[in-house]
Design a protein around this nucleic acid. Structure first.
Lengths: 248, 248
DNA sequence: AAGAATAGTGAATCTACAC
DNA sequence: CGTGTAGATTCACTATTCT
């Protein structure tokens, strides 16, 4: 029976206190890349930045809380993310994997942070969002990216698993949506397969706990860390509800 | 009536002699990323490096020539590609685009080169290859990437065009295959749409001329540069054949 | 329907060289 | 001359797609 825990606090403070081992680190950090100017990136709040114009700016359809930690410049982002991933590597079992979400703008910085932290970069899995907004006279920004790294040689599964090179799924909408940058559980369930069966998933940026739902659904245990108390509570309620009812 | 030219020689030598303007620069450079050891990367020929064990190594069906320029280390790759893209930017009309192919390993270096050369990075379009090789206990390396940059503010089309955020297509096989790293014409035709209608596509690494076929098919003119005389000849024959018969 | 291909990779084996 | 190590080479392997 897989178990779960949500810690409330800063990943940099919580990670050194944990003991592990973790068999998969799945991280969805604040991308620090929304907004077009430096001042927009560092001063705007996350609701204004990430919710497309027409909703949050002029009276919204949804009323999701913002989140902290999204106002670093690119150098600070790289160093900060490397520190978090270093803390996660300390807990990671040999052969375990790290999966780090990023967008196209921060992909190079994220790959630097992953490797600076000591993980071996093994590949990139694009996440295709079919419902992304079209862009006039240009290529639609339809993908985010999952960077895959391992702690040494990758864990050998028995039986061998073959995982996709591209995942597809739309962001949750309506009342299933709990966080501005929420990832679909279907996508996360595919990604969690790289974790050792019955192993433990460590998530330093738990948000509303989608990775936890995916982990439990795939029979992995889950340890989440979330900075914003509001979301830590939401994640706890959601995971408790999942274990009680099997529904999200 | 769109026109075409293939120049035989090194892009760094040919680009300064051209006058332009170009409305789209499409570049498929040698990725310099195959091989696992330093000596494999720098000494192995491209056929041995990229054609998988079952074919070229033990008696192949196809017998494609190798190509030059695939033995740089990553720093040299970055600097060299930046030089080529700088030469291309000089010819690029204001608002024109650059599209640069790369793989996941070289994506960060390629984005550095694109921006160092003075292009504004606008996005990434993953190219999904359905026939990619599976990878045991990991995520299949199923995508290559197209980096999109512009010379200043992007050209505004009239009427507005909406381009995909993800392209999919398999490498040509059988007798339609002329180059080890050939890109599918269907994919290139989608990408060429970002070029001003009836504009000119500049291709510093023409290879077997697939981008030229795509350009002509979409009513754009084409200027290609190819280092290997063997492939320059193939590209000339192919483009002449396309204009004569409308078939590839 | 059968066969062959894939901008690979991990493990096993072999080789060269220093001590 | 045996031994250990690093680097190079060879081998085996895989699932989806395309001819």
């Amino acid at each position: 029976m897989p178990t779960w825990t949500i810690h409330h606090g800063d990943a940099l403070a919580i990670l050194p206190a944990l003991t592990g081992p973790a068999d998969l680190v799945i991280a969805d950090p604040p991308y620090n890349s929304g907004g077009r100017t430096a001042s927009e990136r560092t001063s705007m709040d996350t609701r204004t930045k990430y919710v497309s114009s027409g909703s949050a700016r002029k009276g919204a359809q949804h009323d999701l809380a913002g989140f902290a930690g999204d106002n670093r410049d690119q150098r600070a982002f790289t160093v900060w993310l490397a520190m978090v991933l270093t803390g996660a590597l300390r807990l990671a079992a040999p052969g375990s994997s790290a999966l780090v979400f990023t967008d196209w703008r921060q992909l190079p910085a994220t790959s630097d942070a992953l490797q600076a932290a000591g993980w071996t970069w093994r590949g990139v899995v694009p996440w295709h969002k079919p419902t992304s907004r079209p862009r006039p006279d240009g290529f639609r920004p339809a993908c985010e990216y999952v960077l895959w790294g391992t702690n040494g040689q990758p864990y050998r599964h028995a039986p061998t698993v073959y995982l996709p090179g591209l995942v597809s799924g739309s962001q949750p909408r309506g009342h299933g949506r709990r966080h501005i940058t929420q990832k679909p559980v279907d996508v996360l369930r595919q990604l969690v397969q790289v974790c050792r069966p019955a192993g433990t998933v460590l998530d330093p940026f738990a948000g509303a706990g989608s990775a936890g739902v995916a982990a439990l659904a795939e029979d992995r245990s889950y340890i989440g860390i979330e900075l914003t108390e509001h979301y830590a509570d939401i994640a706890r309620q959601r995971l408790a509800g999942w274990q009680a009812t099997g529904a999200d």
